[in-house]
């Protein structure tokens, strides 16, 4: 569904992504894992069109998306829930969600809003509250809910567990599994290697702008090298 080939990107003289190849097929959860500063967020920025690719190809359902505007990428159904949530702090929860369907899914806005409220009953309770006053976990729910309002065909989640308590992290990963079980392919970009590999179909380990390892999640989980580097085992 999503294919990336030979992707290079960076800022100024610094090349951050040095030739990435990866793919996400329908129904999968694919995890891109790595420590801080290896290029995970840069990859997401390129996928959503905010940062131009310098080289390589991005295809979504066969159509080239590298060089497309962020708006066109949203239009195609590749929806990015960014690191740090990036919700609209001075608007209420409902307005935030409604803006999720600014470009895509506008005609079914009311129905989708109801669906998001069913998934996140907490957001319904807070519908009139300013988004900036929500707790971290609620803000993350809002960011994901806003993404769902655009009827994603593939959802990119950037560090959804960042800054959440261990209990909320559990809940977040359970939610990701549930969304996926409903048929939504997910690209999960995370630092949390253990829990991500538990729910992912396949994983890619990003190190210094290249994929150092990749394969089925179960294989990666048992890889001694990976366990040594990321789990200290």
């Amino acid at each position: 569904m999503l294919e990336v080939r030979g992707l290079r990107a960076g800022y100024g003289a610094v090349e951050v992504l040095r030739g990435l190849d990866m793919a996400v097929a329908g129904g999968e959860i694919v995890a891109v894992l790595g420590a801080n500063g290896v290029g995970k967020t840069t990859l997401n920025k390129v996928l959503s069109g905010v940062l131009p690719a310098r080289e390589g190809e991005i295809r979504f359902d066969g159509a080239r998306l590298d060089g497309a505007t962020p708006a066109a990428i949203v239009e195609a159904g590749l929806i990015h829930v960014p690191e740090g949530r990036r919700i609209f702090p001075t608007m209420n929860v409902r307005e935030n969600l409604e803006l999720g369907s600014y470009r895509r899914g506008r005609s079914r806005r009311a129905a989708n809003l109801e669906r998001v409220f069913e998934t996140f009953p907490r957001l319904r309770e807070r519908a009139r509250q300013f988004a900036g006053t929500l707790s971290g976990g609620e803000q993350q729910m809002l960011a994901i809910g806003r993404g769902m309002m655009a009827e994603p065909r593939l959802l990119i989640l950037d560090e959804p567990s960042l800054g959440l308590s261990p209990l909320l992290v559990e809940e977040m990963f359970a939610l990701i599994q549930r969304l996926n079980a409903e048929g939504l392919p997910i690209l999960l970009v995370e630092q949390n290697v253990v829990q991500s590999l538990e729910i992912a179909t396949r994983g890619f380990i990003l190190e210094n702008g290249t994929f150092a390892m990749s394969g089925p999640a179960a294989t990666l989980r048992d890889d001694p090298e990976l366990r040594r580097i990321y789990l200290g085992l």
């Binding site: 959503s48 069109g49 905010v50 505007t69 962020p70 708006a71 949203v74 239009e75 929806i79 990015h80 829930v81 960014p82 949530r85 990036r86 919700i87 609209f88 702090p89 001075t90 608007m91 803006l99 999720g100 600014y102 470009r103 895509r104 806003r146 655009a150």
Partner: peptide, 16 residues
């Protein structure tokens, strides 16, 4: 209002 406060967030919902 979205662009005024959160430009990246706005771009990611398809606002130009």
């Amino acid at each position: 209002r979205a662009v005024a406060k959160e430009k990246l967030g706005a771009q990611l919902v398809g606002i130009d």
